[in-house]
Computed example of a mutant assay.
Amino acid sequence: MNTQILPGATLGMLGGGQLGRMFTTAAQTMGYKVVVLDPDPQSPAGIVADSHICAPYDDETALSEMAQLCAAITTEFENIPAQTLAFLESKTTVHPSSKALAATQNRNVEKQFIASQGIATAPFLPIQRREDIAEAETAIQFPAILKVATFGYDGKGQVPCNNLDDVYQAFDALDKKECVLEQRINLAREVSVVLARSETGSITNFPVAENVHVNGILHTTTVPSGISSDLSQKAIQMANKIAKGLGYVGTMAVEFFVSEEGAIIANEIAPRPHNSGHYTLDACHTSQFEQQVRMLCGLPSGDCDLESPVVMVNILGDVWRNSEPHWDKLLAAPNIKLHLYGKQAARVGRKMGHFNVLSADTETAMQQAEQTFTALQAE
């Protein structure tokens, strides 16, 4: 049986963004100390942590210091080098593993892994070099979308393509980096499953969430989702199979497409807490970040049941315009919970915070969410 890491111990977080910040807050609330390693001296997680090691992710001296301080270490995003986790694994407990992380860092590797589990993906073609593009005529149908294989997020590094010529142009525009060409599906909905898997292999699932993206960035998450209980169960089973196949330990998410024909198709794996799981901070007995702490420390899962219908709305830097948003209008509502991430500068497309609207039903919550989002925006 694995030894539990109990409050009073020190935990490590690789990455200083908002996900690291919310993990840090959850861990500190539970009585742990947190060391954050991030190269940004003003990182949102670093400024609230007990200790901030300001260093690059491949600095072995800094990593050795972190390993010496921490009983266990986790990460907040998938673009931490897998070799960094491998280095730390020889010195302390690390979840998720370097192997699990490596399987999710490259879209081609990720899709091939998902397919190896017998789970459907959109038809896709790996493109390593320009000569590979010709295969698209037989491998997929247009329209399609070309995505960089690594370091793409929130719609960055993605180009819609209606024909073969578009793919050549897009590949050149993306600096001829390794890409994946994905066939577009007749999309009815987008949903996600956030889960927590322990070292012993037990899995606890949060309710399936329904997501709406604007310009490639998540805008709203609604729970309960609008899909049937049968489809929800299928999505959960697929996500759990992926987690088991990865040997994953921690909190993770899988995003799915639901086609107009009723098929459910795996899109992406997030080996960490996920933006679409932020509703859990206020609408569930246990948040996704407390679950991350529990899984890292070998503790039993918390209760993931939904306490209230909820709509989560992302707050991007766009909302600031020329002045501070109208926080007074949001905070006047007793059923809305505001979470800001402590970022120093608001920029267009940058995630600055979110708010959760709790209500008796999702229709009422969405109506209030839309009204609040409009009222929030500065002149």
Rank of each mutant, 00 (worst) to 15 (best):
E261C: 11
A360L: 14
P126T: 02
R272K: 01
K351I: 01
R184E: 13
T92L: 08
F113A: 07
E178S: 14
G302A: 03
F124P: 03
T374N: 13
G12S: 09
V36D: 07
E78I: 06
D40G: 01
V48L: 11
T75S: 12
A62T: 01
A283D: 00
A82R: 04
P41I: 09
V191T: 10
I114P: 06
L37W: 03
G201C: 08
D59H: 06
A71F: 07
I336W: 10
A72G: 15
F151R: 11
V109N: 12
D282M: 01
P300G: 04
G17T: 10
E131D: 14
P39M: 07
K244D: 15
C284K: 03
D59I: 06
H326S: 12
V191R: 05
V212R: 14
G317K: 04
I140R: 02
E260A: 12
G226T: 09
I114C: 00
M66Q: 06
V357I: 11
G8W: 08
D303W: 03
I145V: 15
G155V: 03
R184I: 11
P126N: 01
M366R: 12
E199W: 00
V48F: 10
L218V: 09
K99C: 07
P273G: 08
V357C: 07
S276Q: 05
A86N: 11
Q233P: 03
C179H: 09
L340T: 15
T362C: 11
E190D: 00
A332Y: 01
A239I: 05
D328G: 15
Q141G: 12
N162M: 10
D38T: 10
T74G: 10
Q68N: 15
A239R: 09
I127N: 07
V214W: 08
M295E: 09
A270R: 06
T25M: 13
I203R: 04
C179V: 04
A62Y: 04
K111W: 02
T29G: 12
M238W: 07
Q112I: 04
H354D: 08
I236S: 09
